[in-house]
Simulated assay, not measured.
Amino acid sequence: MYEYDVSKSNMWREVHEQPEIIRHVIDVNLPIIENICKEVDNRNISKVLLVGRGSSEHALLVGKYAFEIYTDKLTSMAYPSIITLLDGKLDLSDVLTIGVSQCGEAKDVYTVLEKCQNQGGIAVSVTNEHECLMRNVGNYYINCECGKETSFTAAKSYMSQMVITLLFAAVLSHDEKVLEQIKKAPDIIEQSLCKNIEEQVKKSVPLFRNVQDILLLGRGFSYAVANETELKIMEASYTNAKAYSSCDYPHGPIATTNRFIPVIFFLTDEKTNDSTIKLVEKIKKDFSVSTLVVTNNEKYITMANEAVLLPKEAEGVAGVFGMVVFSQLFACLLSLARGYNPDEPIGLSKTTVTF
């Protein structure tokens, strides 16, 4: 097996800090979120707007699924330019708007939150930095509570943002079972960082080490996580990656499939697994592609050339925690295997300002 020197990687270290960090995130922020949700309920707010960029947007995409599955609230992902550049006429007076930025300097996210607050909506600013632009906007402020992130490739801040967004959806669902699923996050993350799973990830990397492109497939929560997997692979190892919903891919993109593009597919939700399984079986038959399956169910591990078996508890919404850990480990190891530094991607800044 290829030998990986992870001893100097800040990303690797911060990935492994996540169990305790997420316990702290939940302990500190759940009471704050419960208080905000009381106002949402009292005002009968029926719409949610989620705004972020990069990894923050991907964390919110997981939340969008949760909001619309577990609550009755129509939830949208914001396109900030509608407000910042195009003079959009949006009425946010009866909207819960959650804006997320690791550094807190996202001027476009700030502007959307400011519009919501000025119109009388409920604006929530979420950052990891206490002293930042976004600390000065919104009806409420939440800190990610994950500490300073030294790796430029966001890991623990993304996980924290995702958990915070899921807590909002869980509390507003008024379903204790949903909330208990989110509270499992620290334990599932810890189990997903066990030596056995790390070795499975390491064993899978050589299949992808020398390729130019990687395809990622999933549906529902797994598609949402696949978007972050895509980003992590690209910024850490300079490998082209593309995530598709397993129901979108057959509508055109499948024409680009070829045996030189290996596929990673996620199976962690029995409600959505079937469509992904059928698609993977088709492209394996038609194009002889190499595959890696990431799943929590032993019965699927023989479907692919390589497999990563997550904890059984990583099912449905709780599956996101295991999938994210896989994505982080995989991106870090692929970067090292290709001779790069996952902590300092070329051209990437920890503070990126757009408007």
Score class of each variant (00 low, 15 high):
residue 118 N to I: 08
residue 155 A to I: 09
residue 205 V to C: 04
residue 33 I to S: 05
residue 192 S to Q: 02
residue 99 G to F: 03
residue 199 E to L: 13
residue 189 I to G: 06
residue 282 K to A: 14
residue 189 I to M: 00
residue 73 K to W: 00
residue 187 D to Q: 13
residue 34 E to H: 01
residue 155 A to L: 00
residue 179 L to E: 11
residue 164 I to A: 00
residue 274 D to N: 15
residue 61 L to G: 00
residue 179 L to V: 00
residue 6 V to Y: 05
residue 34 E to W: 09
residue 90 L to F: 11
residue 26 I to C: 02
residue 152 F to K: 14
residue 182 I to C: 01
residue 15 V to L: 12
residue 337 A to C: 13
residue 229 T to M: 14
residue 88 G to T: 13
residue 44 N to G: 12
residue 281 E to M: 14
residue 330 F to D: 09
residue 176 E to S: 13
residue 323 M to T: 00
residue 110 Y to I: 05
residue 201 V to M: 05
residue 88 G to H: 11
residue 205 V to W: 04
residue 326 F to L: 05
residue 278 K to G: 03
residue 338 R to W: 08
residue 342 P to G: 09
residue 34 E to M: 15
residue 115 K to P: 06
residue 273 N to D: 15
residue 91 D to W: 08
residue 109 V to M: 00
residue 26 I to F: 05
residue 308 V to D: 01
residue 101 S to T: 14
residue 5 D to W: 12
residue 211 V to S: 03
residue 136 N to S: 06
residue 117 Q to V: 04
residue 152 F to Y: 10
residue 279 L to A: 03
residue 239 T to M: 07
residue 62 V to M: 01
residue 72 D to V: 06
residue 266 F to H: 10
residue 214 I to N: 10
residue 162 M to K: 08
residue 149 E to S: 02
residue 324 V to N: 05
residue 309 L to E: 07
residue 20 E to P: 01
residue 49 L to R: 08
residue 68 E to W: 01
residue 223 Y to M: 07
residue 71 T to E: 02
residue 251 H to F: 12
residue 94 D to E: 13
residue 70 Y to N: 11
residue 138 G to N: 00
residue 171 V to F: 02
